[in-house]
């Protein structure tokens, strides 16, 4: 591979944000797992001037039970998600997504922050995190702020992260009793494939009534998006077959997919409806 960039390897978080402090555009970027960034650089889709290596920044690692919230460092790898009992207990949809994520070597390196920051609508961790109402902690040398993942993306590969900021952490509220989350990745093969349509649902049941619903759709719009009208259809009701079907149809209408080498827009819209119906039904009547 040939490219022209400088590489600064940060020893700790303070050094990392200092190295990024003068970043004024996409020419300077943090390098975490590199599983997207290096591919883009090699293909000359991305020509950085300087990269800041985060692989030694221990403060960006770790999965913690932070009282009422689950909090993970931005540099947590997909494999670390899979190996965490806390994630297994609190975010089964994230585990389902991590299991279907690329291959072992990529899972061992790719990070949660990197998957969010790459901005791909097919990023597999984003739909389950969105359905969990995840929040991102963005830090720079001079600031720290919290942004809801739902507010992070501004358009295709556009987001609110400033060039001098890192996604330092991702957190979400520990699910209440009666909550169920599911993710399904539909792809053209089972192993190591780019998602054709990914749907995550997260619902809370209270005495036969759906009190909270989140439906997140991947690879069917310029960004991973919430199907809010479908969610509204579910909340406050017992979920009949008809009501779930109505929500699934609304989710399909909320999507705005394109034709590409993996599938047509029509098929993706069909898949959104099928998967939303299945996942909500399954979450509503979880196997005992």
């Amino acid at each position: 591979m040939h490219a022209n960039f400088e590489l600064d390897i940060a020893a700790d978080l303070a050094e990392a944000v200092a190295m990024l402090a003068d970043a004024d555009g996409p020419g300077v970027a943090p390098l975490a797992g590199g599983t997207n960034l290096i591919v883009d650089i090699r293909a000359k889709r991305y020509r950085p001037r300087r990269l800041v290596g985060l692989d030694r920044v221990e403060a960006l690692r770790g999965i913690a039970d932070d009282g009422g919230r689950v909090r993970i460092g931005g540099r947590t790898t997909v494999t670390e998600l899979l190996e965490s009992p806390l994630i297994a207990a609190t975010a089964p949809s994230l585990v389902q997504s991590a299991r279907a994520f690329a291959g072992q070597m990529v899972r061992n390196t790719a990070t949660v922050a990197g998957n969010i920051a790459c901005g791909s609508p097919a990023a597999d961790l984003v739909p389950p995190l969105l359905a969990l109402d995840a929040e991102l902690t963005l830090v720079s040398r001079s600031s720290s702020r919290t942004v809801a993942l739902a507010d992070f993306y501004q358009g295709y590969k556009k987001d609110v992260r400033r060039p001098d900021e890192l996604i330092a952490a991702i957190s979400w509220e520990k699910p209440a009793a009666g909550s169920h989350s599911r993710y399904y990745k539909l792809a053209r093969r089972k192993g190591d494939a780019i998602t054709v349509t990914g749907v995550a649902v997260s619902i809370v049941l209270d005495r036969g009534v759906c009190t909270r619903a989140r439906i997140a759709l991947g690879a069917v719009a310029p960004v991973v998006l919430r199907a809010r009208s479908a969610e509204a259809t579910l909340v406050g009701h017992g979920l009949t077959k008809e009501r779930i079907g109505e929500a699934a149809a609304q989710a399909a209408s909320a999507s705005s997919p394109i034709d590409d080498v993996r599938a047509s827009a029509a098929y993706r819209r069909h898949a959104v409806e099928v998967l939303t119906r299945r996942l909500v039904t399954d979450a509503w009547q979880p196997p005992i």
């Binding site: 053209r188 093969r189 192993g191 190591d192 780019i194 080498v261």
Partner: peptide
């Protein structure tokens, strides 16, 4: 090989 998909160990 991410677009041309031959069967993997999972397939």
């Amino acid at each position: 090989f991410s677009e041309y998909l031959m069967p993997t160990s999972m397939d």
